[in-house]
């Protein structure tokens, strides 16, 4: 089927793109590490997506993420709105979306029409984001692929109390020096991050549909740690990294069943 819209999510660590058809299915996608010249990279991604599904220049493009205004798309929409829309596409109902990305963690309350009811984001520092784990795990010489296996393979949780990335890094070094097991420390780091995200999420209603997206959702140990903190394990949406780009594509296409936010003034 023909492409009807393209969504680009120009994030802080990766650039993601999708093309969707009129059934709102992803027919082409890509994920690349972000390059310094985002406008150049985005145009290349758009061209590649157009080429892969034979889409002409009339297929609209929406951009989201930090670089959204530099993409040169038909519309720029914030990642909050796009993530809500993208996640709603998978769930079809109201819920709470936890998106843990490289630079930001977002807790988005999605309404029954896929709209944003409320949202919270981490403050400026890296505590509570994917970067927190990434920095420390790299410091410990563990590959990101191995992390989940190691964490899930241990019963020990070595408590890491610092939430600041820089502080936690030094705390981990001293824990290792005291002879604490590496896997237990890794698990402790997951718990620390989960607690931080839990604080951001605040008190959740018990019956709320809890879903998760973002690159960190690919780490099954982190999903479990969040489950322990929040009292229930979030469902990870399919292709969690693409949710923002998918939402952007849906919002610019006509297949969107939800009224999209536009710049027309609201009657007062």
């Amino acid at each position: 089927m023909k492409a009807v819209a393209i969504g680009i999510d120009a994030g802080s660590t990766t650039c993601k793109g999708v093309a969707i058809n009129s059934n709102a299915e992803i027919i082409a996608s890509l994920v690349q590490p972000v390059e310094p010249l985002i406008e150049v990279q985005a145009q290349r991604c758009i061209a590649e997506l157009r080429q892969r599904c034979g889409a002409g220049n009339n297929v609209p493009v929406a951009a989201t993420g930090y670089g959204r205004k530099r993409v040169g798309a038909d519309r720029a929409i914030t990642e909050i709105t796009c993530h809500a829309r993208g996640a709603f596409h998978h769930t079809g109902k109201a819920g709470v979306l936890i998106d843990v990305g490289g630079q930001d963690t977002k807790v988005i309350h999605v309404g029954s029409r896929g709209e944003v009811v409320d949202f919270a984001m981490n403050d400026k520092c890296a505590a509570g984001t994917g970067r927190f784990l990434e920095v420390i795990v790299q410091r410990l010489g563990v590959s990101l692929e191995d992390v989940a296996k190691r964490v899930e393979g241990t019963d020990r949780i070595v408590k890491v109390s610092s939430t600041c990335t820089v502080f936690a890094e030094s705390e981990v070094v001293s824990l290792l020096a005291q002879g604490e097991p590496l896997d237990g420390i890794l698990r402790g780091l997951h718990t620390a991050l989960a607690n931080r995200i839990g604080a951001l999420a605040g008190r959740l209603k018990p019956d709320v549909d809890l879903i998760m997206s973002g690159g960190v959702a690919l780490n099954s140990a982190m999903v479990k740690a969040l489950g322990t903190t929040l009292g229930r394990t979030p469902r990870v949406v399919p292709q969690p990294q693409l949710v923002g780009a998918l939402g952007a594509a849906l919002l610019v296409s006509f297949v969107s069943e939800v009224p999209s936010p536009s710049s027309t003034p609201v009657p007062m």
Binding site: E115, V117, P261
Partner: peptide
Amino acid sequence: EAFIEMVKSNARA
């Protein structure tokens, strides 16, 4: 920006 998108969609509903 996301907040204003939210307020608009809220007001429309």
